[in-house]
């Protein structure tokens, strides 16, 4: 079979909606693009643990301390699940976890724009759990149909656990919304702080980047950024309003004629800075991760024992 014939056969499978498995033949473009996507997803989960773990030591009740710990732990767990899937696919490329994680630290692999932002109050922990995780579920649920079988399978578990995270975040936000005037104000300020990030979360509407096109072509993704953002509004805007919170955008409204939400465009140039790891806390958070990675290198070497120690870069 020629390469062209194999490729045609592969594309026919994709178009029939079949699932691709790690051991199947696949074009390099598929493998490389997917590894990159899953690597970014996995490491974003790992980086996503950091803004919330900042609040574990300060969580205001024993019950909150426990649920936030469980939530942060789940994020690491999602990172682990997805990283394992990425590792299996990356193996023929000669890349192991060491390289995949290493590329985060050198800036070759990006992490999600939303995790470059500060979380200065307890209400931020609530907003992250409720709305950032809400946005994550919207975008991840859209990937449950992904053409790559192993990824679609782990996402089922990830999405189920995200359901718990949203309940956890809602619970914090509901308590603050029903609390003292100071607590309510703290919640509104956190929403004000995160609103633009929630818009940036899904990326620009008119994205036609090379990798986005490839992901669509292979039916790894099937929904556009704007479709997902609108879906997020559908679900969360009524809830935000029902808590008596204000969306910090005077032009925000339902456009009946267009059957979509109208919103003021966020400052998209911020995404470019974040992509260069020049967001507000990009370097701080990468610094934490780099430090912990270097500080514990000797431990990983010890797990391999003397014989393997020399093999680690």
């Amino acid at each position: 079979m020629t390469h062209e014939e194999r490729l045609a056969q592969f594309m026919a499978r994709i178009e029939r909606g079949e699932k691709i498995e790690s051991t199947d033949w696949m074009p390099d473009e598929y493998r490389i693009t997917l590894v990159k996507f899953m690597q970014m997803h996995a490491l974003s989960e790992v980086m996503g643990a950091l803004p919330e773990k900042e609040w574990v030591p300060k969580a205001p009740t024993l019950a909150r301390k426990l649920s936030l710990m469980a939530k942060v732990q789940d994020e690491m767990g999602h990172g682990q699940l997805i990283l394992r899937v990425a590792e299996d696919l990356a193996k023929p490329l000669g890349k192991s976890r060491e390289e995949l994680v290493g590329e985060l630290l050198t800036g070759v692999c990006k992490f999600h724009n939303v995790f470059h932002m500060p979380a200065p109050t307890w209400a931020d922990a609530g907003i992250i759990g409720w709305l950032v995780d809400g946005a994550a579920v919207v975008s991840q649920a859209a990937l449950l149909d992904s053409s790559y079988g192993p990824y679609a399978r782990v996402l089922q578990r990830v999405c189920a656990e995200e359901g718990f995270h949203i309940q956890h975040g809602e619970s914090i936000c509901l308590a603050l919304a029903e609390g003292t005037p100071e607590q309510r104000q703290m919640l509104q300020e956190a929403l004000n702080r995160w609103w633009e990030s929630l818009l940036l979360f899904f990326g620009p509407a008119d994205t036609n980047s090379a990798s986005a096109t490839i992901l669509m072509k292979y039916r790894f993704r099937t929904k556009t950024n704007e479709e997902l953002r609108q879906k997020f509004f559908d679900k969360y805007v009524p809830r935000i309003w029902s808590l008596g919170l204000t969306i910090p955008d005077p032009d925000f409204r339902w456009n009946e004629a267009a059957q979509r939400w109208h919103y003021t465009q966020p400052d998209w140039t911020k995404l470019k800075a974040i992509a260069r790891n020049e967001g507000p806390l990009s370097q701080y958070r990468l610094g934490l991760r780099r430090m912990s990675y270097e500080q514990t290198k000797w431990v990983r070497e010890a797990l391999l024992g003397k014989a393997g120690a020399g093999a680690i870069a």
Partner: peptide
């Protein structure tokens, strides 16, 4: 949390 020697 988030800083242990490896993810697992």
């Amino acid at each position: 949390l988030g800083l242990a020697p490896h993810i697992e």
